[in-house]
Amino acid sequence: MSHRSRLSTFVLDCEVDDLAPHVEFWSRAFGKPVAPVDQDGDGKYAELETSTDEPILLLQKVDHASRIHLDIETDDVDAEADRLEGLGARKVAFVKRWWVMEAPSGHRFCVVRQQRTPFGPHTNTWEDDTTDG
C-alpha cells in the first residue's frame, strides 16, 4: 500500500482577541482577498484566496504565542504521521481529525486530511511499511 502527501498550508497562528484586523493586514500584505472571513463560524479561522498551485494561507486565532506553522495534507493521516515519526518527528496530540507533530528541530506542524483535489504535480507518493517488526 502507499499514501500521498504534500505541503498544504501556511498557518499564521495569531494570539489576538479579534482576528478580523489581522486578516485584513495579511490580506493587504500578500495582495490576496479574504476567502471565507470566518471559516467555521467561531471567529477562529480565516483563509486568504490562493491559486490551486500555491499553498493555502490560513489565519488561526490561538491561545499561545503568535507564530507560523505549516500543514502537510495527505490521503492517510495516520500513515503519514507514522512515516514522519519514523523520520524523528514526535506525535504531540490528535486533534479532531489531524495530528499535531513536532519536528526534531522543535518546530510544530500538523498532518491533515487532503485539503484540495486533485493532489497535483507536487505530490509525494510513499510506500507504506507493511512488514511486521
Rank of each mutant, 00 (worst) to 15 (best):
A81Y: 07
S105L: 01
D75H: 02
F30V: 07
L70E: 00
I68R: 06
E102P: 06
A89G: 08
K96R: 13
S5D: 02
V16Y: 07
Q60E: 09
K91W: 05
L48S: 12
D71R: 14
L7F: 14
A35P: 03
R113K: 15
S105V: 04
E102M: 10
K91M: 08
A79R: 00
F109N: 07
F25D: 00
G41N: 03
A79Y: 01
E73I: 00
T130M: 10
E127M: 14
Q39G: 09
L84G: 00
R108T: 13
D40H: 12
W26P: 01
L48A: 11
S51G: 11
I72Q: 05
D38Q: 07
G133L: 07
M101L: 09
D129N: 14
A81D: 08
G106W: 11
R67W: 02
G43C: 02
H122S: 12
T125H: 06
P21A: 05
D53N: 10
Y45P: 00
D38T: 05
G88M: 03
T123Q: 14
F94A: 09
T9Q: 13
E73N: 07
E102K: 15
P36E: 08
Q115C: 12
R113V: 11
L87R: 11
W126E: 05
V95H: 15
T130F: 04
N124M: 15
V37N: 11
V95Y: 15
V92S: 07
S66G: 10
R6I: 05
E47H: 10
I68V: 12
L58A: 13
R4F: 06
T52C: 02
Q114A: 09
